[in-house]
Design a protein around this nucleic acid. Structure first.
Lengths: 140, 140
DNA sequence: CTAATCTCTCTAGTGACTAGAGGTTCAAGG
DNA sequence: CCTTGAACCTCTAGTCACTAGAGAGATTAG
């Protein structure tokens, strides 16, 4: 009927300390306790934790997930706020992609030019010493 | 002849506390000091800091940059080690790209399906509750 | 009953900075 | 020479999302 923290973590694929951490920062409600003070979770905890896990995998920061969860708890409201969080995440993802594509190109260029001799004529070292070709604002 | 920390930072585009941080973790050598205990840098510090900055922009972690710098200081050795660090970085970049492309696709799919009604029939919330389509190992 | 496995709390560490407090030094203008 | 304001100093703590480890108690299988 009730799940221990280890079982919950195994089912959902989240490590035990991470679940405790989520409880600490109030992303998960405080669990009930057994007679011996161990956490016991109802089946519904599976869904909530899976939701968090999936959102994390999509790159949502915990703050955004907190917002999404509290929206999900009010099913009668408009989902415009949900959409806007997701759209923000999509935008952030695209920005990171643009960034990384630039990096990939520059790294490829650097490595292509390297004749692999001694460090003194290494193109990689030389390229790193020069002003960057790619200007980035957020590395993340 | 010598540069203050502020001037150095402005020239290279690195914030002053970041330079001090780099000195703290021994990525930069300890700077000389003025009579009044302020850091003074020779012109060569411009190159070294620019190197660090550029490598950071390419996503190299500071540990890798430390290795690159110590390699760069031994110009007679083979640059194979340099190459392998750079190749590792290229691989990491490509892995992140694959990851992010998957995320982008899933976020797009989620948003496309959203009819934007109430939260109770929101596809985004629903999609997040389901098992993930994309399995990721490292989010970074 | 015992041994193995889980679980508990708590603290501290990761990476790469950033922010802030509270104080000192420097360069320019009057 | 004096003052003002910017730039500098050190140090601590905070960020994010965990992860690792210590040392102790709980539970379960044989």
């Amino acid at each position: 009927m009730m799940l221990t923290i280890g079982k919950l973590g195994r089912e959902v694929g989240v490590k035990v300390p991470t679940i405790r951490y989520y409880e600490n920062i109030c992303l998960l409600p405080e669990a009930e306790r057994s007679a011996g003070n161990q956490r016991l979770y109802p089946k519904t905890a599976l869904d909530r934790l899976a939701f968090i896990r999936h959102a994390r995998e999509l790159g949502f920061p915990l703050g955004a997930i907190r917002d999404l969860l509290s929206l999900a708890d009010r099913p009668d409201q408009s989902c415009a706020a949900v959409d806007s969080i997701a759209r923000g995440q999509l935008e952030a993802t695209r920005a990171r992609l643009r960034n990384l594509r630039g990096l990939e190109a520059e790294l490829e260029r650097m490595l292509d030019q390297c004749a692999c001799g001694t460090v003194s004529d290494c193109r990689v070292i030389e390229a790193l010493g020069k002003q960057p070709h790619v200007l980035l604002h957020a590395m993340e």
